[in-house]
Amino acid sequence: MKILLIEDEISLSSSIEAYLVEEGHICETTNFFEDAVEKIELYEYDCLIVDINLPDGNGLDLIRLAKKRNLESGIIIISARISLENRIEGLDIGADHYLTKPFHLAELNAHLKSINRRIHFSGSNQINFNEIHILPEEHRAFINNKELTLTRKEFELLLFFMANKNRVITKAGIAEHLWGDYMDTADSFDFIYTHIKNLRHKMMKIGSVDYIKTVYGVGYKFETST
């Protein structure tokens, strides 16, 4: 995907860029509003990642501009503002997601993947990887055409792993993704362990390779290259 990242904190934008480039995206970064305006007007991107508070302007205006140009691109807001009004306003003017800082890069990546599916495979929304076949909209997953019966959380977990293949995902990152405000991170580690154990068991039982590896003390990794 071709992504435009608009974030004034260079340290943060460089991390995001590094992560996204590793994922195979083309990522352009700008730290200024004016620069971003120019880029949005001249080029086309699959996705805009926009920080709201820019030193020389408001990120929301960039979203309005992109919408005015009738771009198909997905929009993710990253903001330090946690209030609901900001979130609602952002989503109202057409953003797909609103992430509050600090966020996990894996989370951002998962959102990018879902935007990617929406843009490039509009309608026939599905994920295929080796023996795994997932229909995200229908909440169904198959291994070698045999259906996996997963609980809601297990399914979300599988999707999250598929979006972040070959990445070490921290337990906190998983907890945040699965439960958000519903669980305080540390409380949820036991549940994550149980969910992952069950997911692995269910997948391998119908013939999947054991992809999910434990990174001791840190988290998990969906490893495709052995």
């Binding site: 943060l12 991390s15 590793e22 966020f103 990152g173």
Partner: peptide, 28 residues
């Protein structure tokens, strides 16, 4: 609110660091 941004930087850097291949377990 100002604290959120540096926290985001720390988090993202740590996450990037975790992606480095062949880190010794201790450093993980």
């Amino acid at each position: 609110h100002e604290i959120q941004t540096p926290l985001a930087i720390i988090n993202s850097k740590l996450e990037l660091l975790l992606q480095c291949k062949e880190l010794p377990e201790k450093q993980y």
